[in-house]
């Protein structure tokens, strides 16, 4: 029989946990519950809850075309970012998986976006995409106002974000490739598989465990993109790049509608939560080895 831990022991255990709990409580739990609380109220300009409206804020959102636009834009954005950043990361990792002279320089280049702040990257892109002095138009000979044209603005921001997020993916995939036993490629080449067949039959399946994790992290990260929108497009032109996170920011700090912003936050949280849970469910079924 195990003895029940004495009161002292139990208190001591909680004592050790206390700093952690405290920090979580202040920076995570309190804001979280406060957000839910605020989403049920109309607020004054100081962000203080003034009038209880129940699910009124949510009802407003669900009837607002602007919010639906935000959702749609966010969805397109997330798809482009996730696919793009994973593709770039994977490509870089596969290319850098062989030892060759200068490998370190290449690896650093591929991992670099990780170290760049999104806002400074956005500043650089702003110059690159500038309609008259930008190098992109200069090189391609096109005359497109990339970030001010509703057709291109979202794609531009998304590609920038994809590139920014690709750095960490490169690291994940490099680690994943490192885990694949080199000798199975030798056997495959003796077996007569071409490099492309080897990629699809061995490399991709070999990455599948880390692929899933990377996917989840990427989706969450993509939903939270903010800095690049703020600097590059401010949600415009029109509302073509008004991602939910940016819309929350605008509602809260420009329009002082904290209640609505809080409600959007909660909806964003729910969406990400559901997506994550669904993916974990799928993963459980898909695990093969």
């Amino acid at each position: 029989m195990k003895k029940k831990p004495s009161l002292l022991e139990r208190t001591r255990a909680y004592g050790f946990l206390l700093p952690c709990i405290l920090i979580f409580a202040i920076f995570l739990f309190y804001p979280f519950f406060k957000t839910i609380f605020l989403s049920l109220y109309k607020t004054n300009k100081m962000g203080q809850a003034k009038l209880f409206v129940g699910i009124g804020n949510y009802m407003d959102l669900l009837t607002s075309s602007s919010f639906y636009n935000s959702l749609k834009v966010t969805l397109i954005f997330v798809v482009i970012v996730v696919v793009g950043s994973m593709a770039i990361g994977l490509l870089g990792a596969v290319l850098c998986n062989k030892a060759f002279p200068g490998i370190r320089a290449f690896s650093t280049a591929y991992a670099l976006p990780m170290a760049i702040a999104s806002s400074s990257a956005a500043m650089i892109f702003k110059i690159i995409l500038h309609p008259s002095v930008g190098i992109l138009n200069k090189l391609t000979g096109l005359n497109i106002n990339w970030v001010s044209d509703p057709k291109y603005a979202l794609v531009c921001v998304a590609i920038l974000t994809a590139w920014l997020n690709s750095g960490i993916n490169f690291l994940y995939f490099s680690a994943g490739l490192g885990n694949i036993d080199e000798s199975i490629y030798e056997r495959a080449s003796v077996d007569g598989a071409s490099p492309i067949q080897q990629f699809f039959h061995l490399t991709l399946p070999g990455l599948s465990p880390i692929m899933f994790y990377t996917l989840v992290v990427n989706i969450i990260q993509a939903f939270q993109s903010f800095g690049q929108v703020k600097i590059l497009t401010q949600g415009g032109p029109g509302e073509s790049t008004n991602l939910i996170v940016y819309s929350i920011y605008r509602d809260a700090f420009f329009n002082y509608r904290f209640g609505s912003a809080a409600a959007q936050s909660v909806i964003l949280f729910v969406i990400v939560m559901i997506l994550t849970l669904v993916m974990f469910k799928i993963e459980k079924k898909g695990v093969k080895y």
């Binding site: 036993d181 000798s183 199975i184 030798e186 056997r187 003796v190 039959h201 061995l202 070999g206 080895y289």
Partner: peptide, 14 residues
């Protein structure tokens, strides 16, 4: 040619 490797080299995902 066809080869049996000293360390088997089986494909783990198959």
């Amino acid at each position: 040619l066809s080869m049996v490797f000293q360390n088997y080299a089986l494909y783990p995902n198959m």
